[in-house]
Write a protein that binds this DNA or RNA. Structure first.
Lengths: 130, 130
DNA sequence: CGGCATCCAGCATGATACTG
DNA sequence: CAGTATCATGCTGGATGCCG
């Protein structure tokens, strides 16, 4: 008894099996919703390329390892573009690819929705001060 | 240099700090993007209430524990409604709340997008070893 | 500046057994 | 049928140190 538009879209995308155990979508979803990926994507969402240390600063609390790891995953998945200029000292810039822009729109949409629910009616910005 | 609509929405929701270390949104996001939550929400997306065993069947591979745990968090977060009838044998039905419907729309949107990228032209994401 | 290698801890998840 | 309790584990993520 499929009635909703959502379930129809699901069926169209995944077929009747919806998604089962080894569905690669699960893995891909896990990567883009990992602890730091949404933060980094959001940081890049204004279109301005950012450097390593700028990203590190924006994703408050991230470690070198996770920054590196997350950026490499996002790059491998085609969401982030890495532009390394062969100069000394190194100069590397990260930016969103077109796919990255689309992904970030959806993630931000989800984040804002969840944020509104989690915080109830309270304005989200209240407890963000560092 | 905020130029994109996405970053404007972010700024509106989270203010200038975007979100920092202890932002509760991160936790809430983690819960709804946990391993099983999207599966269960998707299973309920056609509007038909499902029973424990039906959910268990649809979320292929889930264990009793994770089914119980995930359903309880979704219920606590207000996304799933639990309707238990005091009969023998027990008869319990799960369905989406209005919030759950909205959340599921967004999750399904994200899942379908990610699925298209993962299975599409992009080189299927070289798994980030560790 | 922009990383990578190694080791380690905590938590999400899993397996198994039991129950009203 | 619809769970809970207990124990085990694997993987994400963190701390630290080193390098071109």
């Amino acid at each position: 008894m499929r009635v909703s538009a959502t379930s129809l879209r699901l069926a169209a995308a995944f077929g009747e099996g919806v998604y089962t155990e080894n569905c690669p979508t699960r893995e891909a979803l896990t990567r883009v919703t990992s602890r730091w990926a949404p933060l980094l994507l959001a940081a890049l969402s204004d279109g301005e390329p950012l450097r390593w240390n700028e990203l590190r600063h924006r994703a408050s609390g991230i470690t070198d390892k996770m920054l590196s790891q997350t950026l490499r995953t996002l790059e491998a998945d085609g969401y982030v573009h890495r532009d390394a200029r062969p100069v000394v000292p190194p100069h590397v810039e990260y930016s969103l690819t077109p796919d990255g822009v689309e992904l970030t729109e959806r993630l931000v949409d989800l984040m804002i929705f969840v944020s509104n629910r989690a915080l109830g009616s309270a304005p989200a910005a209240t407890r963000l001060a560092d």
